[in-house]
């Protein structure tokens, strides 16, 4: 009886739902992506774009995506840590490191919970450099002009950013000012709730500089002058933009986006997925997706990724302590 019912339900559904392979094989041919935010966001685009390139280039037979928002990505992270689902990876980015530092202000009990140390880093795949921008008609031509003006009158420089105090946007600008010998805590940071709104604030003249990701200002290059990016060298998509390093401020920061696995995933599988993510970056299918999203490839797998995360944690902890946000 039960078997018949099962068959019947299966039959009804097989016709209407997309079917996929039910049995697990040894090779990884399907992946489930957990996305800690809603459709249309940065994590969503990264997971869906990567999945699309992986399937189109033939590395995977199928990929599925599950949005799970809440707690600024914490909900999805705790799902990966606690439930340890099979064949599943989590997309994350620099805020994971920041979250590990702040322990998300009391949401977490015990030690080591909701940190990147509780998941297995697979690989960093793409990145976005930080950028400092001014309006086109601004008197500041380069970062030195800004620093000089700041040193003359610290109140004359208001720095806009697309997120809260202590966020990545804030840290990018703070890093640059710190490198220039200023106390980053004295730079007035004006937070907006989206990159676009911070950009509008800059252009309306209520702030003098904007500190955010390069991707956020790529669309407005006609309105703003990018006076420095946190890349080691100039980037191909915007060759006219100078780095902070070449101006004598050795600031390097990359907002990476990458994938993580639950602790329960066998190391062999983690390595396979990491290799797949590296190989796919050489395919034309990836190039299409990359170009569409103006991503920068920063393939950074396995233990290299792990030590990068450790280094970033150290740097950011120091800076955030200085800024008084932890």
């Amino acid at each position: 009886m039960f078997n018949n019912l099962k068959k019947l339900i299966s039959l009804v559904f097989a016709t209407v739902l997309l079917t996929s392979i039910s049995s697990t094989s040894f090779a990884i041919d399907k992946l489930h992506f957990i996305i800690g935010g809603g459709a249309g966001g940065g994590w969503d685009g990264t997971a869906r774009g990567t999945g699309e390139a992986l399937t189109k280039a033939g590395f995977l037979k199928s990929a599925s995506y599950e949005n799970m928002s809440g707690g600024g990505g914490g909900k999805a992270l705790s799902y990966i840590i606690n439930t340890k689902p099979e064949g599943t990876v989590l997309v994350q980015s620099t805020p994971l490191v920041l979250r590990s530092i702040t322990r998300h202000k009391g949401y977490v009990k015990g030690s080591g919970v909701l940190s990147y140390k509780d998941v297995k880093p697979i690989a960093g795949v793409i990145g976005d450099y930080g950028a400092i921008a001014v309006a086109k008609n601004s008197p500041y031509k380069n970062f030195k002009d800004v620093v000089d003006a700041y040193k003359k009158d610290p109140k004359s420089i208001k720095m806009a950013g697309g997120s809260v105090r202590g966020s990545m946007d804030h840290l990018i600008g703070a890093l640059a000012f710190q490198e220039a010998g200023a106390n980053p805590n004295n730079v007035v940071y004006v937070p907006y709730d989206a990159g676009g709104k911070a950009l509008a604030g800059l252009l309306s003249g209520e702030t003098q500089i904007l500190s955010t990701g390069l991707g956020e200002v790529m669309g407005a290059r006609d309105q703003v002058r990018i006076i420095g990016i946190t890349a080691p060298e100039r980037v191909g998509d915007a060759p006219e933009v100078p780095t902070l390093k070449e101006q004598g401020y050795d600031v390097q920061f990359v907002n990476w986006r990458g994938f993580f696995a639950p602790k329960s995933m066998p190391s062999g599988d983690v390595k396979k997925i990491a290799k797949m993510l590296g190989d796919v970056q050489k395919t034309p299918e990836w190039e299409t997706v990359r170009k569409r999203n103006a991503w920068v490839n920063i393939y950074n797998p396995g233990s290299k990724f792990d030590s990068f995360l450790k280094k970033q944690t150290k740097e950011m902890t120091k800076l955030m302590k200085k800024l008084g946000v932890i």
């Binding site: 989206a194 669309g219 006609d222 309105q223 569409r292 999203n293």
Partner: peptide
């Protein structure tokens, strides 16, 4: 201006850039 005023237009800006179009007065 290339400024997305809302989540919806932000998604559209992404699509524009993906098509290789630079918004702006030009």
């Amino acid at each position: 201006l290339g400024i997305p005023g809302s989540g919806t237009t932000a998604v559209m800006l992404g699509a524009l850039l993906g098509f290789g179009i630079q918004p702006g007065p030009r």
